[in-house]
Design a protein around this nucleic acid. Sequence first.
DNA 1: AAGAGTAACAACCGCCAGCAA
DNA 2: ATTGCTGGCGGTTGTTACTCT
Length: 320
Amino acid sequence: MGRQPCCDKVGLKKGPWTAEEDRKLINFILTNGQCCWRAVPKLAGLLRCGKSCRLRWTNYLRPDLKRGLLSEYEEKMVIDLHAQLGNRWSKIASHLPGRTDNEIKNHWNTHIKKKLKKLGIDPVTHKSLSEVKAHTQQEQPLQEQQKQPSSPDELDPKFEHENHQNKDLEKPENSIESSTITESKEEDQMIMTPLFDSMEIMNGFCTDEVPIIKPDEILVPCAPSSSQTSTSSSSSASNSSNNFLEDLVLPEFEWSNIENCNDINSINTSMALWDDDFIRSLEFLINEDDDGNKKQVFDAPLNQYPRMVMDSESWANGLF
DNA sequence: AAGAGTAACAACCGCCAGCAA
DNA sequence: ATTGCTGGCGGTTGTTACTCT
């Protein structure tokens, strides 16, 4: 037998996240760290599917995210990495601390593509457009002869870029690429040019490094849920959601001391990494409503949550 | 000022690899 | 070995903001 489905999708909310939903999700992850996403919406009191929660967290709520447009430097990196990796946005994002694959993908499609075209560079091949044009004109008669693809790769857009890469290899003098695509981790490292080394020094944060907790270590807020709903200042405002997130001034995180997330002690240690100042500022910011009035949104100060021990069966059956 | 067109980006959808049951 | 769920990924769509006429 397999596992339970991630969600039944019945009665689940879709569309933009409200400020209240953001608060609930942040509240939950601040308190519990990251655990099984399927359980998050139930435990956090959200009518969302786990996948949606994960996406919202990784793409928007994560504390390490940079906001605003990509800098010229970052843009240059994206272009360079795209030339080497193609549309592997997550891989590209992994070289840009604080940026998400979604953000980079969007930026590529809306900004960089146009920029490159303006500069006469084909955004797919990273070659000059005139050359690409000439190349395709040369190939056209041949392609008409061979309309049936000779290999499955040709049908798969994923391979399109790699095919270009191979072509590029034939004419390295025309490419801005500095290395070839490889899947191995070792060679992935080699993609990092000295330019990227400075980025490595930055305090990179990875969602994988968010403390993972065991089911029986979930902290369940004990305050009545009505306190949350009564404080919901704007259930419709993705705008207000944006505002309160823009205001968040988040500290640098150091997750390096979490060596073994399966160890309960290390999990407790990891929770301590959200230092008091940060928690206070977060509470202050999150508790502010749209008019700037202070409100109690967190059910209780984070350090006052009782640690509720759940047995694994309760967890598995989702009895909350 | 209003409507149309365009840009920007958040969110969703479907697919897939990995893995637990 | 098989089944089917989870989490991650890339492509696409929908919504909002902005600009132009």
